[in-house]
Amino acid sequence: MSLYRTELRRLAKRRFSRWMTVLGLLVLATVMIGVFFSNQKIDASALAKAERQAEQQYQEQVRWSEQERLACERAKTDGTVDPNRFPADCSVITPPPREAIESRWFLPSTFDFRENFGFTLLPFAAILALVGFVVGASFVGAEWSTGGMMNLLLWRPKRLTVLLAKLSALLTGVLAVALPAAVLWFGGFWLVAVYRGSTEKVTSGVWQSFALTGLRGIVLALLMATVGFALASLGRHTAMALGGAIAVMVVGQFGLAILLDMAGVRFAEAWLLPTYAVAWMQKKVTLEDWEACNATFTGECRPATFDVTWQQSSVLLGVGLVVILGAALWAMRRRDIS
């Protein structure tokens, strides 16, 4: 227990942990402030203004179609009609029906909590996961590269206990930041909705869905922190984790995506990790193959689809975690420390 408390103190004392956490929280705050200022509350005057703008655009369409119809008839009379510009029958040039131009198109952006909040949980989880990964990698990587781990093992010669105590301290730290951040995120966007949008139709079921998505986001951050920690411990350097992540993203994702695209593989995104991260957060990602046509009874051609569910994601992420963490623990137990 003393080792765990000491590692918590070490994590809190490290400047890199502090600054990365502050940076992550600042980015989250910037997103929230940006959403606040780019949205407005819709009141009667905003609705009336939108109605006026829709009517104005309709009138412009009426004028323009009238001009075009007259130009068409003139060209027919003069015998200089351009078949590429005008139809054979000038009377078909008519304005769109009034209802085709909707007033909601002219409404300013507004934050509907029920409709929009769920989308904000994806960047929330992504930023926390990134901070967790980098802090996790640095926490153990710097210890290895500066000799701190060796010093610690001279004091506590139980390798797995030391590594797991460090990991526990890291996860506690990530949780200690992520939980209050999540509460602030929920509360902050509720206030954004109150002052710059709408909080209508937010039922207990909606809250439950958001809470579960937020929980999955925090689990994703914990998982990424563990992966960063394990990779840096395997390579005994922070750069191992960061380099590994960059290599996976550049070679394993962009490169693979290009290769799959060139090979014409169906549902290529199913081979890419971000798809599973998004599926984990959004419960389901539906991939579409526009090369295939599934005819409906109306004769419509619909693309073939492939669903990636959060359950599939959880299996993939779980297996990945077990393999990487298992390798780090095995290496810690077996390898010489010099």
Binding site: S2, L3, R5, T6, E7, R9, R10, W155
Partner: peptide, 8 residues
């Protein structure tokens, strides 16, 4: 201090 903490 951190070493002392780890070693009681």
């Amino acid at each position: 201090s951190l070493l002392a903490g780890a070693g009681d």
